[in-house]
Design a protein around this nucleic acid. Structure first.
Lengths: 229, 229
DNA sequence: ACCTGAACACCGTTCAAGT
DNA sequence: ACCTGAACACCGTTCAAGT
């Protein structure tokens, strides 16, 4: 609870502002980790800062704007892959790094999903790297753009789903989750679902993530090969 | 839409209920198309039905439940692909059909995204068909399950993004959308983004959808070929 | 059995007013 | 320039009470 520093010798003895935008965003990320996306409200954030909710609107245009600032901060720790690696490996590293970054804060994927198109430097740098990697690999402009969407959407959706499942499991007391429920389906109507029940709830999320990456990587590879031929 | 049958000779001639669950869901879908997801509230739905908001809770457990009923109804028109087709084509038909169904109602993808795991017959049948197609194609149980997730997530995310972009464009007066803004970025920092600006806003959504499908199809194909070998 | 009135506990946002 | 008080226009949900 920061006291506002009062300098006696200050020539312009103004009180310096209690909070700036950066502090608000930091507090919002802290609150996000504590209470989750649904409980992150302007009012709860204000309370955490010992301030009135209306005061936030001096520093931030609105909740939408706050979310996009949070998205920027979330993406700050993104590291770049080694450019000397083959492009397939660069994409793999990139995807895993992005997922790691999204898992670093609770519900971060939901923040990203509602924060609009990237406009800040961190998120722009992230998309720049993806697109550059694809261009370097030899994709044409259109294909590189489309593939960029594809990769970005894959990771964000995956983490979104992965964390929402975790939330759902946490609130429903059922330990084994979907499994028993799926297995109770009429096997005559849904033979494939019942047969695959073991793999339809998330046993090994990491494995499933790598599977998707591999499919995308393979698909892009053959697409590239055909274009070049 | 089960009407409760009214027999004239009924010994207990009670007034029949003003609404049942089916009517509520139909009204909700109608309202969704009129006002969009954000304006679809329990209260606005009640007003449309000339009823108190509290009355809805007699027929429906809550908004969450209503959304899952809506999701079921949205997926009702899903058609099955011809099983004699090669599996790659079946998947292609399936993906396009699913997208068509999601585009048939305003913000349908958002409804699906917030309606929880499929539990009703329509959505279960949809996933059953996808999984069956993959199993028939020769994928193992685990791979089929993972590929099912991948395909489902691809379509829903694509339509979600596609419709949200359309919403954003509609409310901001900027006609050309992202383009001019992207092109104003410092080219030294983001050379690839600037170079690909033309393809980064949605010119031809259909084309981009087909691109993603092709990548996934190719990727699955080589994955299958390697497993078999 | 089905529906209403009225409330509870919240939201995001605005804006005149204070300092 | 920065922050507060108080309000506006909403939410989803509950529940005693009516018919």
């Amino acid at each position: 609870m920061k006291m506002r520093p009062f300098k006696v010798s200050d020539p312009k003895p103004q009180v310096e502002p209690a909070l700036d935008q950066g502090q608000i965003v930091q507090a919002a990320l802290g609150l996000l980790d504590e209470v989750g996306f649904d409980s992150l409200t302007m009012r709860s954030l204000a309370k955490k800062l010992d301030i009135q909710a209306a005061s936030l609107y001096w520093h931030v245009r609105g909740k939408q704007h706050l979310l996009s600032l949070m998205a920027e901060e979330i993406c700050a720790p993104m590291g770049e892959p080694d450019r000397t690696l083959p492009w397939r490996n660069q994409l793999e590293v990139l995807a895993n790094e992005y997922r790691r970054v999204l898992l670093a804060h609770r519900d971060a994927a939901r923040v990203l999903a509602r924060s609009g198109a990237p406009s800040g430097p961190n998120r722009l740098r992230l998309t720049e790297i993806v697109l550059r990697t694809l261009l370097d690999a030899g994709f044409g402009h259109k294909d590189a753009a489309y593939a960029g969407f594809l990769l970005n959407d894959y990771v964000t959706t995956f983490v979104l789903e992965e964390t929402q499942d975790a939330n759902a499991e946490a609130e429903s007391a059922a330990d084994s989750g979907v499994q028993n429920w799926v297995k109770a389906l009429p096997p005559n109507d849904y033979p494939s679902i019942v047969a695959l029940a073991d793999y339809l709830m998330e046993l090994d999320v990491d494995e499933r993530f790598q599977f998707g990456i591999e499919i995308l990587r393979n698909g892009l590879e053959t697409h590239l090969a055909r274009r070049k031929a």
